[in-house]
Amino acid sequence: MDALNLIAAVQALQPDAKVREQTDQPTLIVPAHALVALARQLRDDPTLRFDLLETHTAVDWLDEDRFELLYLLASVPLGHHLTLSVSIDRDEPVVPTLCEVYPIAQWLEREVYDMFGILYDNHPDLRRLFLEDDWVGFPLRKDYEDDFMLERPE
């Protein structure tokens, strides 16, 4: 399915979804509360069949005071791609988990929690993935400070 048809098909499922500009793949901005239901529909719809969560990560937009969560979906049988973008408040970073729809999300979300401190509602095993449990701070946040880190001399 090409990009325009794909966006139209998803918007039929979720009318609140808006197109995100400045991307090279079809990307839709989805409200956080609608994420799980939409993902399940995308996975089960016979014309869409997004069965692979290729990756999930976050972007810290410090100036706009929000985190943008990106879910890159792909369809193995049909070969098309779609990105879902969810914006959440930086002060209260909670989103529902996608574990039940895509099992791999369990670990991808743990990585995002480890790096950005985003909390996943209903996650079965939310804990740090790469860093020790007693690590302070979330390294990939833009305002992360660590005395240990060295700046490269100019």
């Binding site: 909390l119 509602d121 939310l126 804990r127 449990d133």
Partner: peptide, 12 residues
């Protein structure tokens, strides 16, 4: 809402 952050120790 149920966000619970676990540790490795608790896990194993």
């Amino acid at each position: 809402m149920s966000v619970h952050v676990s540790t490795l120790q608790a896990r194993i």
